[in-house]
Simulated assay, not measured.
Amino acid sequence: MAAETVRLSFPLPQVARIEFARPDRANSLRPSELEALHRCLDVAEARPEVHVLVITGAGRYFSAGFDLASLVERTRGAVAAEQLQSDFERLANRIEATRLITLAAINGPAIGGATDLALACDLRIGSEHTAMTMPAASFGLPLYASALRRFATRLGLTQAKWLVLTAAPLDANAMLTAGFLSEVVAADRFEERVSALTGRLASMPGGTLSAMKRALNAASPGWDDSAAQRAHRTLVDAVDGDLIAKRIADAVAQRNS
């Protein structure tokens, strides 16, 4: 599973962790890494007990996006450029749509396509060393449609246009202000915070979280009415009265103890 460049682990029975592991190349992603990421998702999604996925990077970078040498090699001609775009889009769209609750633990700079992989995740936190930039426009490479949708819906149209059309960089605090991140954490507490958040998600009923994720996705711009109807059906199917009653009773008992 290209273990040397993409690592999959299970720190808790309910949690899968994917780590970009090319720190000597800023965790840049070649076609082989994109394929390995799909295989990692296959394994994680096949485990019914897993309902949380953490995506992070080894070393100083989250990911520098598509490997520049591969980018040059694969963008010689319209067909190659189109294939490059579709590879990244397919992966980002899959991350967005997976039943797993996804957390981008952005430990360092996220560049290019890696920013879209992060935006495709449900939750995003960053260390104080986090930064982002989307340089596609400066290369003359138009972003694929779903990436533009994610920038616009996650960050707002004005902010999305600024970041995409000017290739402007943002540091961690600016990413927080823009809504790219929900939280910025000191570097020496980052892994502790990631573990605490994943533990909290792991303790919640996975079916309920997944159903609410689908409904939230369906309520955002860019999703059609049929998606909303399917999401509503999933919400109804996720109701487990006995489980709800037990967890409420446990919470009350804990509060009163």
Results as ranks from 00 to 15, higher is better:
123 L>S: 06
140 G>Y: 11
35 E>N: 11
151 F>A: 02
50 V>Q: 03
125 I>T: 04
42 D>G: 09
64 A>F: 07
154 R>K: 10
50 V>A: 08
36 A>E: 04
135 P>A: 05
111 I>D: 00
120 A>F: 01
74 R>N: 14
64 A>E: 09
155 L>W: 00
152 A>E: 04
59 G>R: 05
118 A>N: 02
37 L>M: 15
64 A>L: 07
28 S>C: 13
34 L>T: 13
36 A>H: 01
122 D>E: 12
73 E>P: 08
65 G>R: 00
132 M>H: 02
128 E>R: 11
91 L>M: 03
61 Y>W: 15
136 A>F: 14
103 L>P: 00
144 Y>L: 12
106 I>V: 14
98 T>F: 10
120 A>C: 04
122 D>N: 12
57 G>S: 11
122 D>K: 04
64 A>W: 09
66 F>E: 08
36 A>Q: 02
63 S>M: 07
92 A>P: 03
137 A>S: 06
57 G>H: 06
128 E>G: 12
114 A>L: 03
97 A>F: 08
151 F>K: 00
33 E>C: 12
150 R>T: 02
117 L>D: 01
151 F>W: 06
157 L>E: 05
58 A>H: 13
126 G>T: 06
137 A>C: 04
123 L>F: 10
120 A>P: 03
127 S>W: 02
88 F>T: 13
151 F>N: 00
95 I>Y: 04
125 I>C: 02
93 N>L: 14
69 A>K: 13
40 C>I: 11
96 E>M: 06
40 C>L: 10
77 G>A: 10
114 A>K: 01
49 E>P: 03
127 S>N: 09
31 P>M: 06
91 L>K: 00
61 Y>A: 14
53 L>G: 02
44 A>H: 01
153 T>F: 00
99 R>M: 05
126 G>R: 00
66 F>G: 07
56 T>H: 12
130 T>G: 12
31 P>N: 08
50 V>I: 08
140 G>T: 04
96 E>V: 05
65 G>Q: 03
138 S>T: 02
41 L>V: 04
85 Q>R: 14
68 L>S: 09
117 L>Q: 08
48 P>A: 06
38 H>T: 14
51 H>L: 01
90 R>K: 11
44 A>W: 00
52 V>I: 05
118 A>P: 04
113 G>C: 09
38 H>V: 15
73 E>I: 09
133 T>R: 13
70 S>C: 12
62 F>V: 07
90 R>Y: 05
127 S>K: 02
120 A>E: 04
67 D>V: 03
127 S>T: 10
135 P>D: 01
68 L>K: 10
81 A>G: 15
133 T>P: 02
47 R>E: 03
130 T>I: 12
104 A>R: 01
143 L>T: 11
158 T>K: 05
86 S>G: 13
146 S>A: 15
149 R>K: 05
